[in-house]
């Protein structure tokens, strides 16, 4: 069994994943009321508009929370434990949060950061990690 990856053709996610493959972190934004939303969906919950565009986010955020995953996990993840998973709050809006991994480099493994060094609130910047045909938005610590 392989790693769990998104379907690049999914109804809600296709545009987002096409963006990450170009190195862009795209946030779906309502054309009528200008409200950004994540995860993507067809209708704006503020004004019920079906019109939206995709805006490039700054790619900067802060760690909102994190976990350290230990066994037992799916076979494809067994050799990676323990590894951390983070939730990042984007600087654009506190409502925009994304699950991701904290890496030391764009092509680094998800278990390279010592979890004991992770601090809620620390600043991170997006980096796109290539896994098969997917570019996963991951995060590196911001340079001070």
């Amino acid at each position: 069994m392989s790693l769990l990856l998104p379907d690049l053709e999914s109804e809600d996610g296709a545009e987002f994943w096409a963006g990450t493959s170009r190195g862009e972190l795209l946030i779906q934004t309502c054309v009528s009321c200008d409200t950004p939303r994540f995860p993507p969906r067809p209708m704006c919950p503020q004004c019920q508009s079906l019109d939206f565009s995709w805006r490039q986010a700054s790619g900067k955020g802060k760690i909102w929370s994190f976990v350290v995953v230990h066994a037992p996990v799916l076979p494809a993840y067994q050799d990676l434990v323990p590894y951390s998973v983070i939730v990042v709050e984007l600087d654009e809006s506190p409502n925009l949060r994304m699950v991701g991994n904290l890496l030391t480099r764009g092509d680094g493994p998800i278990n390279e950061i010592d979890p004991n060094t992770i601090v809620i609130g620390e600043s991170v910047e997006v980096v796109f990690k290539k896994v098969e045909d997917v570019a996963l938005p991951c995060w590196m610590r911001s340079k001070k």
């Binding site: 379907d7 999914s10 109804e11 994540f38 993840y77 699950v99």
Partner: peptide, 14 residues
Amino acid sequence: ISNHWQWSRPFGLL
């Protein structure tokens, strides 16, 4: 994954 789990599971939140 094509449903909402695509926003968490690919990062190992399983």
